[in-house]
Structures are given as C-alpha cells and as structure tokens.
C-alpha cells in the first residue's frame, strides 16, 4: 500500500517539479501557471491519499488447483481468471521501487495476448512460493494450451 503511494507520489512530484521550474523560467504572466500548479497539487494529494487505500481494498488474488484468479484496479476494476491448464509462462519481476520495499510482481501469461494476469506487490517469499506452485501445477498439465 505504501508502495503504491510512493510510486504515485514520485510521478506527481516529477510533474510538479516541471511546473515549478516552468514557473521560474517563464517571465510572462504567472497567473495561469500558479493556478495549474495548485490544481496539480490538489489532484496529487487526493490521488496519493485515496488511490492506495482503494487499491489495497480491491486487489486480491487466489489460486486453486484449476485456476488463477486476480482482482485489481481502483476506479476501473478488473477480475481475471485463467485455467491452470492454459498457462504459458509464469514470470516474477521486481523494479527498483519494489526492491526498496521488498516486493515482487508475478505475471501469469496465457496464449492470448489479451489476458496476462498480474499479481502486484507480493512480498518476496510469497511471490516465490506462488511462482513455484504455479510452475509445478503447469508442468503437470499437457497440451499446447491454445
């Protein structure tokens, strides 16, 4: 949750920094700039405070013997289900921010380009366990999964 907050904050801070820089460089009429900056700050604060809570409440994932299920998003929510028998690859990845927080993402892809399932922000050991489990159960099934 903090991770999402920080990630959003970093993005917003970059935008605000650009606007501040512009404010100082541009010598002309500063009124619109100040207004835009104020709007940005308000949006940023509300986004950074609301979004992580919301996401945290929405995000869920689950695996059974037959299927993987994820639930993600906040304003636009998405539930995804894929049968284990149709799984093509299981990846786990960690970006720099994730490493800072000791987290990992797991991506489960199927033969369809439309439906990769992503589990965001698992702690590292859980992610490893999930990857191992899925790899094992995927190996047990046969067929070319299309």
């Amino acid at each position: 949750m903090w991770f999402w907050g920080v990630r959003a904050a970093v993005g917003w801070l970059a935008l605000i920094a650009v606007q501040v820089a512009w404010l100082f460089i541009d010598d002309g009429d500063r009124g619109p700039h100040v207004w835009a900056l104020a709007v940005t700050v308000v949006l940023a604060v509300s986004h950074v405070t609301v979004m992580p809570w919301w996401r945290y409440r929405v995000h869920r994932w689950e695996t059974t013997a037959d299927a993987v299920y994820t639930q993600s998003g906040w304003l636009r929510q998405e539930w995804r289900i894929a049968p284990i028998s149709r799984i093509q690859t299981v990846d786990s990845e960690r970006g720099p921010l994730e490493q800072l927080f000791g987290l990992a993402n797991v991506t489960v892809t199927t033969a369809s380009a439309a439906g990769p399932l992503r589990v965001h922000g698992l702690d590292r050991s859980t992610a490893q366990r999930l990857v191992d489990e899925l790899t094992e159960s995927t190996q047990a099934t046969t067929g070319d999964a299309t």
Binding site: E62, R129, E133
Partner: peptide, 10 residues
C-alpha cells in the same frame, strides 16, 4: 476452501 488467500501490499 482455498490453498492460498493473501492480500497484496506491504
């Protein structure tokens, strides 16, 4: 009924 039920996040 699930083998794993975990919530994401730190």
């Amino acid at each position: 009924t699930d083998p794993i039920v975990t919530s994401p996040g730190a």
